[in-house]
Design a protein around this nucleic acid. Sequence first.
DNA 1: CATGAATGAGTTTTCATTCAT
DNA 2: GATGAATGAAAACTCATTCAT
Lengths: 203, 203, 203, 203
Amino acid sequence: MASEKARASVSNPRAPQQRRGRERVAALMANAAILFVEKGFYATTMTEIAARAGAAIGTLYLFFPTKEALATAILAEHAENLSTQLDALQESAKGLAPAAIADALFDVLGDFLATHPAYSALLDLPGDDGWRRAMRVRRRGQIAALFAQAEPPLPAGQAERLAVIVPQLMRIPLALVGEKKMRDGVLEELRLMLARHLRASAE
Amino acid sequence: MASEKARASVSNPRAPQQRRGRERVAALMANAAILFVEKGFYATTMTEIAARAGAAIGTLYLFFPTKEALATAILAEHAENLSTQLDALQESAKGLAPAAIADALFDVLGDFLATHPAYSALLDLPGDDGWRRAMRVRRRGQIAALFAQAEPPLPAGQAERLAVIVPQLMRIPLALVGEKKMRDGVLEELRLMLARHLRASAE
Amino acid sequence: MASEKARASVSNPRAPQQRRGRERVAALMANAAILFVEKGFYATTMTEIAARAGAAIGTLYLFFPTKEALATAILAEHAENLSTQLDALQESAKGLAPAAIADALFDVLGDFLATHPAYSALLDLPGDDGWRRAMRVRRRGQIAALFAQAEPPLPAGQAERLAVIVPQLMRIPLALVGEKKMRDGVLEELRLMLARHLRASAE
Amino acid sequence: MASEKARASVSNPRAPQQRRGRERVAALMANAAILFVEKGFYATTMTEIAARAGAAIGTLYLFFPTKEALATAILAEHAENLSTQLDALQESAKGLAPAAIADALFDVLGDFLATHPAYSALLDLPGDDGWRRAMRVRRRGQIAALFAQAEPPLPAGQAERLAVIVPQLMRIPLALVGEKKMRDGVLEELRLMLARHLRASAE
DNA sequence: CATGAATGAGTTTTCATTCAT
DNA sequence: GATGAATGAAAACTCATTCAT
């Protein structure tokens, strides 16, 4: 629908030159992200977003041509952030054992998803979108590469499979809002399960 | 908002007295479920649902006072179905080892989710809903009970944690539409991972 | 809109030959009247009426081709009833003084309106309708005739004016539901006011 | 049903900040009032109202979340207006005889109802509404106070009864559209009737 | 850049009325 | 006569988006 527009704005949310503008944009995106997580993308209103950010609806549209574009901008920013962290991990995890890599990945992903809840909410929106698919493919590739360079390296196939599995595993505890104990327990259970699996696979 | 209406219709989708009516309702729900999965709940139009089911819009509203109510009715039916299967499993899995139970659960859940894709789509709709939460709690309890009666039994805490984890694991391969190989591979990887984890836990 | 249909059915609500049918019709009209008073004509649903009368919607339409026709049938029946009583009064009030006539009229109208609340509700429906206007004109004529034959007779003009005024006066206490005291007090106040007025006019 | 929404908007029809907005709101309310009187509340369409006011349907809903809310806003404005006039009368009528007060009240009410025909149409809508009841109670209190401060003062009970009666009396001539002569005649008849009644009561 | 009133296409929802059984 | 499922035109209402100021 508004895909062309949306696409254009991914790399160019009307790049605000002034500091004031950059702050505005940040506030708009932050508030949109919160609402998208709380009520979902579709149930969130552009007017609501603007109001929550203390801006006028017109101002919101000054920076983001469509609601889709706004979501895409948020997702792009988050994805970029994660991508950078995975790149860093790629360096720092060189030569580690698979289980150690999984552990490091758990830390990075766990942290990232906890602080960027909009990431999953927006990445897994229904309705297939080429852009979003590309984001997923990229992430998959980075994580697969991580496992592929383990010592001993995981077979390509398994690395790829784990690249699909691990990010989804990490989302499980996040759904347990208001059950801190269970949340931490589930995270540990998952961590242990994956570690055992990798150690067993290595034999 | 329309929760009262929606609630009322859960147990009472204007209970159609005649066979003709029951068929209608089934067709409406089936077509709604398909659309909800394909385009998502919010992008699906009541008009569209009626049209796809070959009914008039008024007919749809004759049985479901609200779009929410329609979704709830579908979800309730699917949840009932799953619940029954889990109950059956509870019987047939008596005295099995944890890993064997997990395996059986994988089969049941895998089958169910594959044939009822609307279940996850509707159960995990954003915006917290007491009804949906209750459905999740119920499922969690049933699965926990399953693991708790294993031989040897899993500690209550772990059974509970696995009851949270396993259904989410099963959703992972489902997202891989159009990647049959990967899908099957991921499923096996998950199955193996869980089995190893349970066997290791038992020692 | 449906006036032709409605008109036809005024004198012919599909005259049910059997006793059973006549009872059905009576029940339908009675329940419709109650709902029309309670919630108003527009807020009352044909389905609701049928349900309250323990009949199917189709049965309701068997006797009344439109909602308007149903209202018209009720109104016609009530109007006929009132007309008959006014005719009787015309006889029995011959030669009475204006104030005495007013008093008698108060009794008749008060009783009638109290037992036929739908009469006013339906007669004064918004949207000008020739039929309803005719009903009003007829009533006005009958009451004017009543006053015109008083002893001493009221001037034609005043008789006509009172024929407009008195029925409206009688509606005032009816609005005071749940204030019995006030209701009775208002009725007496009105009765007294009119009596004094007529006595003073006679001098 | 939509009472919460409606209620909120009574005091807050999305308070338009700009002059332009205030004019819009006024035009919408004025046109709605005209249509409500002409065709009745239920037969009047929101679309129709917007069109008559030269606005888009969305604009109408921008200020009034509900048709009910729109009616309530109009009624509130008119009621406020009347209340102010009754307050003024309270001052200017101090020490007058009951009949003189009635006369003054006839003038004020007659004028008000003639220029604000929507007032009665909306105040007496079927279906009991707490808000509307409150409006009526307030008016009753103001008029009763008016009569209670007459010289000589009317007994509290009678003042209260007249507070119920007089506004309804004033509505009688209004129904006589297209019968100017009769209308004026009826008004005078009522005025005379009330004056005589009060004078007689005073003795 | 900023604003917020205005728009109107698109959805949901209602209900009088019809019709096959 | 009786039934109640089915219809669809018409209303209410929403919200992304535009635009004059």
